[in-house]
Amino acid sequence: MDEPTDSELRDRYLPRLREELAALRSASADTAEARKPVELDQQSVGRLSRMDALQQQAMSAAQDARRQGRGRAIGAAIRRIEAGEFGYCDGCGDFIGLKRLDLDPTIMRCRECAG
């Protein structure tokens, strides 16, 4: 199979990447309240409830950190598309392959270089 052109790659992956990035940003905004510091008012909330609130806050913060990391990877993929460098291995420079890119368009290495 021939390598797709930059235009074909842009048309195939850019909408998907932008949609995922928008969804990540929306999810981050929706969970901002859950990441706020937990009030430690011992008069209104019991010890176990505070511990549970702290655990929920930590889990929400960790989930948002993963979203931020994925967002950075998507942003880098979008920049590669715009620069005409998308779809080529960071290691060897060969085309990564559509099947691999279809699984994760943020991937930067071919199967051989990924190890």
Rank of each mutant, 00 (worst) to 15 (best):
L40A: 08
Q68I: 12
P105M: 14
Q42P: 03
G46F: 09
R35G: 04
A61W: 05
E85G: 01
S44M: 09
R35T: 04
M51P: 01
R47G: 04
G71F: 07
D30Y: 08
L21M: 14
G97D: 04
E20L: 10
V45E: 15
R72I: 05
Q68Y: 11
R10N: 06
A76W: 02
G71D: 06
M1K: 05
D94Q: 14
A77C: 07
V45T: 15
S28M: 15
R80M: 04
A23K: 15
P4C: 13
A114I: 00
A53F: 07
R18G: 12
K36L: 09
E39K: 09
R67I: 05
C89I: 02
R66L: 02
D52K: 09
E112P: 00
T31A: 15
C110M: 13
L101A: 07
E39P: 03
F86V: 06
E33P: 00
R109A: 07
G87H: 03
I107Y: 01
C92G: 05
G97L: 05
E20H: 06
E112Y: 05
L17R: 01
R12D: 08
Q55G: 04
M1A: 12
G115P: 01
I81A: 06
R79W: 11
D6G: 11
A61C: 02
L24V: 07
A23T: 05
C89G: 04
G91F: 08
Q56W: 11
D94S: 14
